[in-house]
């Protein structure tokens, strides 16, 4: 049985090696992307930060973030919507299960629940470090690789660790509840929605043409969010999008984990109809 598995693994490896060698030699036609696609890439790189073409540039040295939140902003908006539909689905399945209802009544100390003191101490030390790294990734999203989603998922990992190591009961007593994460997630989503129409509102107030997902002033739409704030490069709406996305992703993923980690008995009692919120 072991021998057979090793043989199959070697066969798959050889198959992939042969296939990739054939593709490298040109079995799928040309190996380079078409010329018109390369022109698009050149334009993106040329316009990401370019103070001499102020009505086309994003004013962000990070080409990926300028594509994600400016050139192709609507794509990212719908991508975010898909993720939040999944989280809304989780919340809808666990409806009526309010994770703090039972644990609120019994006062518990930190030592009674959760893992060993070693795990707790390590988590306590790493918590501020990881949160700082996550916030740095999100706030530097328009300058260095990273962004809101990256920062948010990094923060969600350490919050998940807190939920597991300190136990769900204790975390809920510390304020990481379904309600608080739901509120933070909604605040983040609302921030993204408002930022996407921020320049549109500005244009309506001033009385000139403007677009949704507009960042810098364009040729026929001379309103925009300032790229510099007190001499510091903030790239207009990009920093706002990154902050709100970080908040929404961290809170949304933590919310899912709170619901998934809830005890089965509690969920079963809600589904039987013994109690509901």
């Amino acid at each position: 049985m072991k021998y057979e598995r090793a043989l199959i693994a070697v066969a798959i490896v050889v198959f992939i090696l042969v296939l990739s060698y054939a593709v490298t030699l040109g079995a799928m036609g040309s190996t380079l992307p078409p010329r018109d696609l390369r022109l698009l890439a050149k334009l993106y790189l040329w316009l990401a930060i370019n103070p001499w073409t102020r009505n086309l540039t994003v004013m962000s040295p990070e080409a990926v973030t300028s594509i994600v939140w400016d050139f192709r902003g609507l794509d990212t908006f719908f991508e975010t919507a898909v993720l939040y539909l999944a989280i809304i689905g989780t919340v809808a399945i666990y409806r009526g299960v309010y994770a703090s209802s039972k644990s609120r009544e019994v006062p518990i100390s930190e030592d009674e629940v959760g893992m060993s003191p070693i795990a707790k101490s390590v988590t306590k030390i790493t918590l501020p470090i990881v949160i700082a790294v996550a916030v740095a990734i999100a706030l530097h999203g328009h300058l260095t690789p990273g962004g809101g989603f990256q920062g948010g998922s990094t923060a969600a990992v350490i919050l998940l660790l807190v939920l597991v190591v300190f136990s769900l009961q204790y975390s809920i007593r510390m304020g990481i509840t379904k309600g608080s994460t739901l509120a933070l997630r909604s605040a983040g989503l609302l921030g993204i929605a408002v930022t996407s129409i921020l320049v549109l509102i500005l244009g309506l107030l001033v009385g000139c043409q403007s677009f949704i997902f507009q960042n810098q002033p364009k040729a026929y739409a001379p309103v925009g969010v300032p790229a510099f704030l007190d001499g510091m490069l903030v790239s207009g709406t990009l920093i706002l999008f990154n902050i709100f996305e970080c908040l929404a992703v961290a809170a949304g993923l933590t919310l899912t984990f709170i619901l998934v980690l809830t005890h089965e008995e509690e969920i079963r009692s809600v589904m039987k109809g013994d109690r509901h919120e």
Partner: peptide, 26 residues
């Protein structure tokens, strides 16, 4: 592609195994 790495490490090494371990435990 450092942007993808930054999102891939927390999701694929942290969150995704965590979801599966919780589901296996249940």
């Amino acid at each position: 592609a450092p942007d993808i790495v930054l999102v891939y490490i927390p999701v694929a090494v942290g969150l995704y195994p965590a979801v599966f371990i919780v589901l296996i435990k249940k």
